[in-house]
Design a protein around this nucleic acid. Sequence first.
DNA 1: ATTAATGCAAATTGTTTGCACGGTC
DNA 2: GACCGTGCAAACAATTTGCATTAAT
Lengths: 130, 130
Amino acid sequence: MTPERRAVLNGVLDAPGHFTADDLYIRLKRRDPMVSRATVYRTLELLVGSRLVEKVDLGVQQAYYEYFFGREHHDHLICLGCGAIIEFTSQAIEDLQNVVCQEHHFEIRYHSHKVFGRCRKCQQGGSPDA
Amino acid sequence: MTPERRAVLNGVLDAPGHFTADDLYIRLKRRDPMVSRATVYRTLELLVGSRLVEKVDLGVQQAYYEYFFGREHHDHLICLGCGAIIEFTSQAIEDLQNVVCQEHHFEIRYHSHKVFGRCRKCQQGGSPDA
DNA sequence: ATTAATGCAAATTGTTTGCACGGTC
DNA sequence: GACCGTGCAAACAATTTGCATTAAT
């Protein structure tokens, strides 16, 4: 546990939900130890390996991360208007998913369920794009 | 509709399920007209726009495509052992997904549901990786 | 002639890596 | 003094783009 790694971990801890490696790097740059981008990537990978952080693929070319310690698995609603990310869990969906896998004799390891659309705010006169 | 575009479309039509832009490019290279990689990308994007082809994100850094004309939407089970891709549909899951979205006042546009694990073959003495 | 599509090669983007350097046991 | 982590800059890989050329109307 080096000072750099501690800095990255701290950065992760007060990150706002979902963030990219670069978000984190930029945010860390404002504080002292000035860790390098490479170390951010390397340390994030480390944290993912130790289940402290989860890497989530939100359908863009950039990987997102989120703090994961002790949290439940959840999936995401992703707003095409403002980029907001809403988390959800549904045991019923997971159960059905297990049934589907059984039918196909498929041994499930993990899954990713993303719904893209518009959040409440963006439906009401919000940003018109996407 | 140029000869190049026709060539790409033909390539798509006899593609084996899911393929990457580069798969397609390589495959086309064996036949005559020799379209360029750029044109393959450009044309695929065009076909996606006209709903003839669907772009699917399988969780790797490469985009996959599949012929989509007149097909139902479906989701995927992806084998971590051999890379096999099994398609599935479940109206029950989609219904529950709609309920979840309603609860969050989220207007759904499209979704992506991927399950990673091991296919039947790979469970039986198959490749040990992942 | 104007417009649109192509091919090439260079640019872009997010991420990874080789390697020399610095610190620690 | 062996080892590990770091920073830098170069390497990468998939995709996109600028631009000059070509083809079609």
